[in-house]
Write a protein that binds this DNA or RNA. Structure first.
Length: 872
DNA sequence: GAGCACTGC
């Protein structure tokens, strides 16, 4: 019995030594009940403890909580070292049968641990051991109130997959009977053990299970190690690391399937760039789901708990631990925000900008900022991963940085072109799909790229009719549409495995080009078009036009056929067209969006000469000019063009400056404050306006009549909130619950931001002053708030219909038929004289989206005099 | 009386 006690103490020493080498003389450990508050309290009260002891203990506690089955198993098997000493001391024959048996089993166990260590030594060093078994994941309980995995969409599933392991792990340690214990570092409170079985159940079943689990774990590790080594990037590991050592900036051209995203950051960590936890390696992704799922996989490969050594950071979800996380996957937008608080990015030693060829706005700005700080941060390494086509552009941008090529691993895809251009690509699409279906053997699903929801629904109908007519002369097909606004349940259908003898036909927008991958696709049909949104600064209007894809896009689409085996891609345009008519790359976002947010961000970082700011593609002067003007009108800039106090406040908000201005006014402008809460809700709804309604039709039927889309949004949100934020309420009202959940998140984030900046307090002052503000006064104040943010977005009713007013006035515009104002006007026959709109969009006509009637022209002059009084 | 690709803080 006392042997057992000694054993445990010894083991504790070893464990602590390994984790905290600097504090080797303050160590000890004991099991304690996880839920026993008094024990923890006693920990905290041990007053002979050094001041930093509590910190240390917290850290230790954190670490030990993360330990899983194997850590406990390893612990148990390390006992053997001490048991063996006893064998020497007392002689084998003097031990009891039970003790002998125990030692035998532990001998086997330790052998397995040794094997595993050897395996580890090959690829990594110094990480804690945890397990992550697929089946444990699948058996983990699903959070209450959530539907089962199958009913949810891919994003939720991915998220759950990333997160659940973490939750599960926090709560459980796997060894049967040992789940009561955690190991806490403590130098005073030593507990005397009276019953050895309580500490380590020396039962045969346990030992057997231990060995069996170890074997499973060794196999799993072998598989992971093999998979890592089999990736194309593995062969280049040393060369890559040498290149990183020799150069500050490295362009990495890694095709899909090369493993760059998961492996490169790990190599950097292994090569010591995190300096024992002092620095971080960051890898940016353009999309949230990618950041989450890659982080999850890498934490698995490195055998750490997601959120500790390896974590991710996206809006609304920070799964990192300060001073512990050494490898962080994050969205590019998050890193950009981090520049605001830490302009030198001093916490990072290496930054990898992944998927840089996608040229998101955040990536482009990041590259410019990084180029600026590299001379001051000689120790900072920058890796840029790009597709082949623009590697030289990145290289030139960073003073001819070396380009490193890593081949991909993909199956060959045959490309077929049409012999002559197709007059009607939709017709050609349907024909091609049925040709493939009748001529090619099963299995092998078909992925069709279309431009939008409308097209997808039309093609689907046509195909269903044809399939019906053909009846049993063809094999059965399943048609599954996928586009981002498709409600969740229907989205998940594309991931259902195709039944035998059936062909699945996926009709997708370019969401399937990068954002999600579908297994089992063997054929791709590509008409070669995409809808592209672009912003015209002169008119302030966006246009959504169907344009031909770039070469990079169609190549990417073709690649989707070669993921599981050799595939075929049918392009509904000519080979000549591919080589002579298509652009190489899609137009970068920075050339087709409103720049006010970026301009304000750069100004707040002290970039005063915007034209000199390094950028891969320079936006037009007209665009920058218009942004500066907008910012000036809102008071974010003074007449000299430098940022004001208000401008800095606006920068703090994670949204466009126009929206931030509305928030600010609703709390701080005495002409309209006291409505911060309402305004925050409306703005959060406006961000997601496009995907709130399941279909466009239901909008007016949702609730009673409202005067404006803005007030309708407010009413919808409040009613939903009053109904307990329930999913069923959304279903009853044809509203997408997932979108509403996002709105709630955004709303909370904006509110917290207002709180931090003291706006909530200001708002409260006004409410105290006028506690019985009537509904109509509130509404008026909301309208005024919006005018301050969107002074140029006003249309006036003339004899020729609505026309814009303001600097570029006189343009004929129309109320969008989905707007509540549209139906309201029709019902009453009385159009409003002035309308404020959130967006002008050119589709078939110049439409105003999300409209709000302005009942009083004088408000315009009152709220933004410097704009309206100077119009003449 | 239209019909909005896709991201992100």
């Amino acid at each position: 019995m006392s042997e057992q006690h000694k054993v445990l103490e010894g083991v504790g020493k070893r464990r602590v030594k390994r984790t905290f080498e600097d504090d080797s003389d303050t160590e000890s450990n004991r099991p304690s009940d996880n839920n026993d508050a008094s024990v923890n309290e006693r920990d905290a009260q041990s007053d002979s403890t050094p001041a930093n002891m509590n910190e240390l203990r917290k850290l230790a506690r954190q670490k030990y909580l993360d330990k899983r089955e194997l850590e406990v198993m390893a612990l148990a098997s390390r006992d053997l070292e001490l048991l063996e000493e006893d064998v020497k001391k007392y002689g084998w024959d003097n031990l009891s049968t039970r003790e002998q048996e125990e030692i035998n089993i532990k001998r086997q166990a330790i052998q397995l641990v040794k094997d595993r260590r050897e395996l580890e030594a090959g690829s990594r060093k110094g990480y804690h051991i945890i397990d992550r078994k697929e089946d444990s994941l699948q058996n983990a309980e699903i959070k209450q109130g959530e539907p089962a995995g199958k009913e949810r969409g891919w994003e939720d599933q991915q998220l759950e997959y990333s997160v659940r392991a973490q939750d599960y792990n926090d709560k459980k340690i796997f060894v049967q009977g040992s789940d009561k214990y955690e190991f806490v570092l403590d130098d005073n409170a030593k507990v005397k053990f009276t019953d050895e079985e309580e500490i380590l159940p020396g039962k045969r079943e346990y030992q057997k299970e231990l060995v069996a689990n170890l074997e499973t774990e060794v196999k799993r590790l072998e598989t992971i190690a093999e998979t890592r080594k089999s990736l194309p990037v593995y062969k280049y590991r040393d060369e890559l690391l040498k290149a990183v050592r020799d150069h500050q900036v490295l362009i990495v051209v890694g095709e899909t399937g090369s493993g760059k995203t998961t492996q490169l950051p790990q190599y950097l960590v292994e090569d010591g760039y995190t300096a024992g936890g002092k620095f971080m390696v960051a890898c940016t992704q353009p999309r949230r789901v990618a950041a989450m799922s890659v982080a999850s996989r890498v934490s698995d490969e490195m055998e750490v708990v997601l959120g500790k050594e390896v974590g991710y950071q996206i809006r609304f979800d920070d799964k990192t631990t300060r001073d512990v996380t050494i490898l962080k996957y994050m969205t590019d937008g998050m890193l950009l925000r981090e520049f605001l608080t830490d302009p030198e990015l001093s916490r990072y030693s290496c930054i990898m900008i992944d998927e840089a060829h996608e040229r998101t706005m955040a990536t482009d700005i990041l590259l410019g900022l990084l180029k600026d700080i590299l001379p001051h941060r000689k120790d900072l390494k920058l890796l840029i991963s790009s597709a082949t086509m623009n590697a030289s552009k990145f290289s030139a941008f960073f003073y001819d940085a070396p380009v490193f090529n890593i081949p991909g691993r993909r199956f060959p895809v045959d490309i077929h072109y049409t012999l002559q251009p197709e007059a009607n690509y939709l017709h050609a699409t349907v024909t091609t799909v049925f040709q493939i279906h009748s001529a090619m053997p099963l299995p092998g699903d078909i992925l069709v790229f279309l431009t939008g929801q409308d097209e997808i629904e039309n093609v689907r109908e046509t195909m269903e009719e044809i399939a019906f007519k053909l009846g049993k002369s063809i094999k059965p097909i399943i048609i599954t549409p996928i586009y981002s606004n498709l409600p969740q349940q229907q989205q998940s259908m594309i991931f259902e495995p195709t039944p035998a003898g059936v062909r699945k036909i996926v009709l997708a927008t370019n969401i399937a080009e990068t954002s999600l991958t579908i297994d089992g696709i063997k054929y791709v049909v590509d008409p070669g078009f995409v809808k592209e949104n672009s912003y015209v600064p002169q008119t302030g209007m966006s246009q959504l036009l169907t344009v031909p894809c770039s070469k990079a896009s169609v190549d990417q689409r073709a690649g989707r056929a070669g993921r599981v085996g050799p595939g075929k891609c049918f392009r509904l345009f000519t080979k000549w067209s591919y080589h002579n008519e298509l652009d190489d790359l899609p137009k970068p976002e920075i050339l087709r969006t409103n720049l006010s947010q970026v301009v304000l961000l750069l100004l707040s970082m002290g970039v005063t000469d915007l034209l000199k700011f390094p950028m891969l593609d320079k936006p037009s002067i007209a665009n920058i000019g218009r942004s500066l003007e907008q910012l000036y009108v809102m008071g974010a800039l003074n007449s000299k063009g430098s940022i004001t106090k208000l401008g800095r406040i606006m920068c703090e908000f994670p949204c466009e400056p126009e929206f931030a201005k509305v928030i600010h006014s609703s709390a701080a402008n005495e002409k309209c404050n006291g409505v911060l809460e309402e305004v925050t809700t409306i703005l959060a709804m406006l961000f997601e306006a496009a995907s709130i309604f399941a279909t466009g039709k239901e909008r007016k039927a949702v609730l009673g009549q409202m005067n404006s889309d803005h007030m309708l949004y407010l009413e919808i949100y409040n009613t939903w909130a009053n109904n307990g934020y329930r999913r069923s309420w959304c279903q009853d009202h044809h509203i997408q619950h997932k979108t509403m959940a996002r709105v709630r998140n955004i709303r909370d984030q904006l509110w917290r931001c207002s709180e931090k900046l003291g706006l909530v307090a200001l708002n409260q002052l006004q409410i105290k002053k006028d506690p019985n503000m009537s509904q109509s006064i509130k509404e008026q104040r909301i309208m005024r708030s919006f005018i301050t943010g969107f002074p140029a977005n006003i249309a006036k009713l003339t004899s020729k219909g609505y026309q814009t007013i303001g600097r570029n006035g006189g343009m004929a515009v129309h109320i969008h038929p989905t707007s509540i104002v549209f139906s309201l006007t029709r019902e009453t026959g009385k159009p409003f004289k002035y309308l404020l709109y959130q967006q002008l969009m050119l589709t078939s006509k110049e439409f105003m989206r999300d409209c709000m009637p302005i009942p009083n022209e004088a408000w315009l002059h009152e709220m933004v005099p410097h704009y309206y009084n100077n119009l003449g």
